[in-house]
Design a protein around this nucleic acid. Structure first.
Lengths: 241, 241
DNA sequence: CGCACTGTTGATCGATCGATAATCAACAAT
DNA sequence: ATTGTTGATTATCGATCGATCAACAGTGCG
């Protein structure tokens, strides 16, 4: 459920250090606290929480997050009732808030050649998920035993994978999914494209190994492979009407 | 204050519940402690630690681990000086101890057709890494910022990836790596096979989604794809001597 | 049986962490 | 300036976690 995708993800670089609300010198005197409007404060906390939990994991301490924000830890609890609620907000902003409804439109837009459509979709999707926040948070979420990832991937399968398969069926003159239910092997071929993109993120943001190729190249190659390999696997074509 | 953990934490999950050194009935009287030889005790702790940290992550509590073993927490510290040392032992047992030196031999055994060699290697390698312990521990290790994963993957690249590329060069009559250094794109093709196997493990043991195909099928398909795709990418062949 | 050796436990320390309550102080209205 | 509202901080509680140590108990030897 899209709660409110008002907050631009944007979020600054890798964990902006404490903006030093206090002076630079050692043990500054008063404190010079900064009053922000509730909306601004909440947004700044949510944005910092995304970067923070992505880096440290959900076991990251609230005191450390507060220090990064340059505020005190109890202030977090004025805007979020619990750490768990803050984490829930992070999920919303990253995984729900960055979902682009246009993707589903694009995949089904038959005025565009299928290879272009798929390439454009996957490049766009890759831009969204190939960030340290998305990749690491998704992995952290998966390693907790919540069903969040399973639900996300079910959503992805229903909205994207099946749409891609339907378009491939159409392109190769095969029966629609409405007539012949989707095959495991077809889903698996789409998984393969998805996996190779996701794994680029794992290599870069979890293993910290520089990627060998550009995302663009990988995507283009995988789409070509998908289109090339799919014909051999789809159910027998029916005679055109 | 419930300091004493009289109440079994029980920790829901799969993780074999405490083997009840104490009787089954509620609040059994004396304790019936079991004396094990130091070697056996250490092995049992190390084995339980692997399953435990793989499930709960390295933030898992030593008290919980001890409860699973049916021993008390201080006993862990008789066999391992610190939690960190225990985790180090887990790394050793899983990532070093399960490495099979025969793999390197197999890849280079030119009496066997290359497709068979690679398939046999990858099926064997998949058997080792496609376990909840290996996959989850590797991911947990990666999400901490230690360089462990980078070191492991560097090792893998030097010992396996380059050997595979060398054999592919030989098979297609191209110059050896000693004459023409390995290309990024070649490594990337091997990465692709590795990634698709690893991702099967991520799906099964992290997302908890049942895999659609057998490992055997995936490996065979990927090897075929590797052999098919590699010819178009390798540096120009040299005239045979 | 009595004794020593050592595997094992109960009790507890010090540090950490999420969360709460009381208090302070910045900003706007008057 | 004075005052009320409320954003922000200080102080602290209760629980948790890694680690330590003295005391207990199982085992083998004489």
């Amino acid at each position: 459920m899209v709660r409110s995708l008002t907050s631009k993800p944007s979020l600054a670089g890798p964990l902006t250090a404490a903006p030093s609300p206090r002076g630079a010198a050692a043990d500054t005197p008063p404190a010079a606290r900064r009053r922000l409007s509730p909306a601004d404060r909440e947004k700044s906390i949510a944005a910092a929480a995304i970067a923070f939990f992505a880096e440290r994991g959900f076991e990251g301490q609230t005191r450390e997050l507060a220090a990064i924000l340059g505020i005190t830890q109890p202030l977090l609890y004025r805007y979020f009732p619990s750490k768990e609620a803050l984490i829930e907000r992070v999920y919303q902003d990253v995984f729900v808030g960055r979902w682009d409804p246009f993707w589903e439109e694009l995949i089904g837009d038959r005025r565009i050649p299928i290879a272009d459509r798929l390439t454009r979709f996957y490049v766009s999707y890759a831009k969204v998920i190939l960030t340290p926040e998305w990749i690491r948070l998704f992995m952290f979420a998966g390693l907790k035993n919540l069903d969040f990832n399973a639900r996300y991937l079910k959503f992805l399968r229903d909205r994207i994978f099946e749409a891609v398969v339907e378009e491939l069926r159409d392109h190769f003159g095969r029966p629609s999914l409405k007539r012949v239910p989707v095959l495991d092997i077809e889903i698996e071929m789409v998984w393969s494209v998805h996996a190779s993109i996701f794994y680029l993120g794992v290599r870069e943001f979890i293993y910290r190994l520089p990627p060998g190729c550009s995302v663009q190249d990988i995507v283009a190659a995988k789409i070509q492979m998908l289109l090339g390999g799919v014909a051999a696997v789809l159910p027998a074509a029916e005679p055109a009407p």
